[in-house]
Design a protein around this nucleic acid. Structure first.
Length: 471
DNA sequence: CTATGGCACGGATT
DNA sequence: AATCCGTGCCATAG
């Protein structure tokens, strides 16, 4: 009944191996481009727009774990499942306007086409022209140069039409694109985040009411205005800084997609989402691994049938297509499978971290995990690379952070400094840590401090002012 | 003289 | 094989 899984574990050919590896390396956003490219270049491959469990391929009527596949899980176990949803349009309104997939040669490196590809299925043909106009008129930060009314006039469209298209654009991948400024961009991004947790609400309040103050880091002033403790405000500010990007147009696209181009301060849609029932602290975590595209891929049965009726040299060529398509599907399945197993073990091991924050991250290496689930360590490296994950509190962090060996210690140092009566020198901090069983050198404390933007003791006079950074 | 940051080395990790 | 990380040594700022 539940097949597919373990038996597809062993690579069949070297081609299979190679392709699985390269797919594994990609984030959802990148994978999406790859899938689209494959779809448009291989007629044997078909995207079925239907919510189906990616695991057992049963039909699902709503998003969520497939009831058949979230098998044998007990109380404490996390529910890890492959989601039929893609991560790019989280709140996709169910307007079912089928559009023939346009077979334009994909030029994925361009922001405009990237956005258009995502919009393709949601966009009225009439709106397409408008969308192109809007996208090309954005300034380098991704903001509108002209107010909507002007756009409506110069394209001779209705105001509502413009408004509708703007809404759509602001929801797809670089979120907050085509808004009127940093403030609106942040708010648009906030709308897309999973909204449980009070930080979200606080963040919204701050952005709405105290945007300029936020920019100047006038924490105290905001706290006073909202009548909330400064530390909470600080938390929310850090949250905004970590997860939202006031300049969506600069995000990611300028710097290309290489490993070096990953700017940590850039928001992008998470590849994985962890949620849990806030009222049940002991309850299972729910881990949703998004698909790269909504719907699922298969070898087009019509194409196979058609091949049988073809003659001569064509049949050779078509067979190649089919073979490539089925290989692609298999690789994708294996990628999913690996991701699922990885997350399964990761979430069990790091539950404390996920629920309670940085300090509880247990040190572990990719090699250990690899050993545990029986794959090569390089597989884990690839699986972890370039992926991001949304935690229950709404923070979006790179998956690689699960393997940050020093995160817990750095967090502890932050706390020591926050609670210090008088500025402690690195040596003293090292001593405190030593007493807690953490043996690190003085020099290392200094390194961690600088990572966390904590000033040296001498400059840390005994007022609450810590860490000065700018965006 | 003390606290820090820079440079560079070696071992671990990827 | 390439990269990351903790650390020791040394120059320098206070």
């Amino acid at each position: 009944m539940f097949q597919v899984q373990e038996q597809s574990q062993r690579p069949l050919t070297t081609a299979h191996l190679a392709q699985t590896m390269s797919l594994l390396l990609l984030s959802n956003m990148e994978l999406r481009d790859t899938v689209m490219a494959e779809l448009s270049s291989n007629p044997a491959l078909e995207l079925v727009e239907e919510t189906v469990c990616p695991n057992c391929q049963r039909r699902l009527n709503n998003a969520g774990p497939c009831p058949a596949c979230s098998i044998q899980h007990q109380e404490q176990d996390p529910i890890v499942f492959l989601s039929p949803r893609d991560s790019f349009r989280p709140s996709r309104s169910q307007n079912l306007e089928e559009q023939p997939p346009d077979h334009e040669p994909a030029a994925p490196e361009d922001l405009t086409t990237h956005v258009l590809q995502q919009l393709a299925s949601d966009l009225h043909p009439d709106d397409r022209r408008l969308a192109i106009y809007i996208l090309s008129s954005l300034d380098e930060d991704g903001f509108l140069q002209d107010p909507p009314a002007i756009i409506a006039r110069s394209t001779r469209s209705s105001f509502f039409q413009v408004d509708r298209v703007l809404k759509l654009i602001s929801q797809v991948d670089p979120p907050g694109l085509a808004t009127t400024g940093p403030k609106q961009a942040l708010l648009a991004q906030l709308d897309l985040l999973p909204d449980d947790g009070s930080i979200l609400r606080l963040a919204r309040q701050i952005i709405e009411g105290y945007f300029t103050e936020l920019g100047r880091r006038e924490i105290e002033k905001i706290a006073e205005g909202l009548e909330i403790s400064p530390s909470k405000i600080r938390q929310a500010a850090a949250f905004i800084h970590d997860n939202l990007n006031p300049y969506p147009g600069r995000a990611f696209w300028g710097s290309g997609r290489g490993p070096q181009g990953s700017n940590p301060n850039v928001y992008h849609s998470p590849d994985i989402l962890i949620t849990h029932n806030p009222s049940d602290a002991k309850g299972p975590l729910v881990v949703e691994i998004f698909s790269a595209v909504s719907g699922w891929l298969r070898v087009n049965p019509m194409f196979s049938k058609a091949r049988a009726r073809t003659n001569g040299d064509q049949i050779e060529e078509w067979s190649k297509y089919i073979e490539r398509a089925s290989l692609f599907v298999k690789c994708l399945q294996q990628r999913n499978n690996t991701m699922r197993r990885l997350l399964q073990t990761l979430v069990i091991k790091q539950r404390d971290f996920i629920m309670n924050g940085d300090r509880y991250l247990k040190p572990m290496t990719r090699a250990k995990i690899a050993d545990e689930i029986g794959v090569h360590e390089s597989t884990i490296s690839r699986a972890v690379a370039h992926k991001s994950i949304a935690l229950p509190d709404g923070r979006i962090i790179p998956l690689a952070r699960f393997f940050d060996r020093s995160l817990a210690v750095r967090d502890r140092i932050k706390e020591i400094v926050k609670n210090e009566k008088q500025p402690l020198t690195d040596d003293q901090i090292a001593d405190i840590l030593k007493n807690e069983g953490v043996n690190i050198a003085r020099r290392t404390v200094a390194k961690y401090r600088s990572i966390e933007n904590i000033l040296p003791a001498r400059l840390r006079h005994r007022n609450g002012a810590r860490n000065g950074e700018q965006v």
